Simulated scan of single mutants.
Amino acid sequence: MTDVEFDFLRAYLKTRSGLALSGEKRYLVESRLGPVCRRFDIATLGAMVSALKSSRDVALERAVVEAMTTNETFFFRDRTPFDLFRDVLLPEAMARRASQRRLRIWCAAASTGQEPYSLAMMLQDAAPRLAGWTVDIIGTDLSTEVLEKAKAGLYSHFEVQRGLPVQSLIKHFEQVGEQWRISASLRQMVDYRPLNLLQPFDGLGTFDIIYCRNVLIYFDAPTKGDVLARLSTSLAPDGALLLGAAETVIGLTEKLVPNAQHRGLYVQAGRTPAARPAAGGILSPAVGSPGLLPPAAQTGAAAAPPLRRVVGL
């Protein structure tokens, strides 16, 4: 692969996926796109570049972009964002949405589904306190291939060993040969949709909680700022955005600000924290867990077409 061909692929991937590859990543392009060449019976990466330039082969274009997408994920990854969901985010969101009895959660860059299914397990475990509520969980990803795996909910022994407590495996999965399938009730709780974060996503509606973790690290600063600004418009005025540990909004957008109590959590600019629900309340938040979001006065999530009732009884 010549320098010109490599530069074309870098620009091509940047335009279509936001992936910002440095000049030192040539080995990564060669190792990941070699199998794509073999799948499409293309002799060399140079010939692949020529095909991308000269024809509109949608299948090839998708395969090139998806091959370069990093899909590293596992159940309850980094644990803290899920403890935060259980102890603070969910109780406070339920207190503010008590009149509507509906919550909307978006897992952007959901990959093979471990993140949204981790949240779904927590919601199902809390079902007695969520009786009569509608909770929409949307999982999106650029890659249609990983979304198909997420929809199937079938994982290897290695995948269920990564972060998943044994009691959750026993409770929420069934063994299928040498693999494990997450329960049908949990699969029904998540609506998976293909979505490129570089493209408009306002059609998804507004969300109370957005998880967009470990994807912005692959974008350059202008792309990060653009995505974050648009995420803010999809976040309810009193909503919560969670980013990865190595990600931040600082220096990228003024629409979102860090929450002082919880690393990795961001809220709309100009909002002040509210008192947390009393101990023993909706989900009995951990003693001492600080509140982090403002009151709900006329700040409910914008209406969106109903998806499914997942915990309502």
Score class of each variant (00 low, 15 high):
R26M: 05
R26Q: 14
R26H: 13
Y27I: 05
V29P: 00
V29R: 10
V29S: 05
V29Y: 05
E30D: 07
E30I: 08
S31C: 05
S31F: 01
R32L: 12
R32G: 07
R32T: 08
R32D: 05
R32C: 09
L33H: 11
P35R: 11
P35A: 10
V36D: 00
C37M: 10
C37H: 10
C37D: 05
R38F: 03
R38H: 09
R38L: 12
R38Q: 13
F40L: 09
F40N: 06
F40M: 10
D41E: 13
D41N: 12
D41V: 09
I42Q: 04
A43S: 12
A43E: 12
T44A: 01
L45R: 05
L45V: 01
G46P: 00
G46A: 06
A47K: 14
A47P: 00
V49G: 02
V49Y: 04
S50N: 08
S50V: 08
S50H: 09
A51W: 06
A51T: 07
K53S: 11
K53A: 12
K53C: 11
K53T: 09
S54W: 04
S54D: 13
S54Q: 14
S55H: 12
S55I: 00
S55R: 14
R56N: 14
R56V: 10
R56Y: 06
R56D: 15
R56Q: 13
V58H: 08
V58L: 13
A59Q: 14
L60W: 05
E61Y: 09
E61K: 10
R62N: 09
R62A: 13
R62F: 01
A63E: 11
V64C: 09
V65Q: 08
V65D: 05
E66A: 06
E66H: 03
E66M: 04
A67V: 02
A67K: 06
M68E: 07
M68S: 05
T69K: 02
T69Q: 02
T69V: 13
N71Q: 12
N71L: 04
E72Q: 10
E72T: 08
F74M: 07
F74H: 15
F74K: 02
F76I: 03
F76E: 01
F76C: 07
R77D: 14
D78Y: 06
D78E: 15
D78I: 04
R79H: 14
R79V: 15
T80K: 15
T80G: 01
P81N: 08
P81S: 10
F82D: 12
F82H: 13
F82L: 13
D83G: 13
F85H: 10
F85T: 08
F85D: 06
R86V: 11
R86C: 09
D87P: 08
D87E: 15
D87H: 15
V88I: 13
V88G: 02
V88W: 03
L90D: 00
P91T: 11
P91G: 10
E92C: 09
E92N: 07
E92D: 06
A93W: 04
A93D: 01
A93N: 05
A93E: 07
